Computed example of a mutant assay.
Amino acid sequence: MLHQQVCDYLRLRYPYTVWRTDFAAGLKLPPQVAIRHKRLQSSAGFPDITIFEPSHVMYGEYPLLAIELKAEGVELYKKDGTLRANPHIEEQAEMLQKLRDRGYKAEFAVGFDQARNLIDQYLRGGTSLF
């Protein structure tokens, strides 16, 4: 549902933006299909949505934005700011860091509001109009 909401928002608010989503994210694929899907990726933990647009000048200089979506209420970090112990989330955090190391903007977004705000800040240089 969250994935669809973000895709619908991009289509509505930024119709000329080029982006791609990992359709298989969160799906329970049959074992043979899951194996094939995994073999078609550079590695596990790849972000859910990639926006192939440069950032707004007020946001910084990034050639693209990669977002790993998490459902509302998911707690990624402990109170001390460290990542919670979860192999799947750790794998995703490592991938986001690899992308950052290459000069891309790559972030987690928990819930629709956080995803929308990240997208708006990245593409418009400010928060959402609505």
Rank of each mutant, 00 (worst) to 15 (best):
M1Y: 09
Q5I: 10
Q5H: 13
D8N: 10
L10E: 06
R11P: 11
L12C: 15
R13K: 14
P15M: 02
Y16S: 12
V18K: 11
V18T: 11
W19I: 04
W19Y: 07
D22F: 02
A24E: 02
G26N: 02
G26W: 00
K28R: 05
L29P: 02
L29Q: 01
P31K: 00
V33D: 01
H37D: 07
H37Q: 08
H37E: 03
R39G: 13
L40C: 10
S42I: 10
S43D: 05
S43G: 05
G45E: 07
G45N: 01
F46C: 09
P47G: 02
I49E: 04
I49K: 04
T50H: 08
T50S: 09
T50A: 10
E53R: 08
E53K: 03
P54T: 13
H56W: 07
H56P: 09
M58C: 15
G60K: 09
Y62C: 11
Y62A: 12
L64A: 14
L65T: 07
I67C: 11
L69A: 01
L69P: 03
L69W: 06
G73T: 05
G73V: 06
G73L: 08
L76W: 00
L76Y: 07
L76E: 03
R84C: 07
R84T: 04
N86G: 04
P87Y: 02
P87E: 07
P87V: 03
I89D: 02
E90W: 02
E90Y: 02
Q92W: 00
A93S: 04
E94S: 13
L96W: 01
Q97K: 07
L99K: 01
R102Q: 09
G103T: 01
K105V: 11
K105H: 10
E107D: 11
V110L: 02
V110K: 03
F112E: 08
Q114W: 12
A115V: 11
R116Y: 15
I119P: 12
I119V: 09
I119S: 10
Q121M: 15
G125E: 12
G125F: 08
L129K: 14
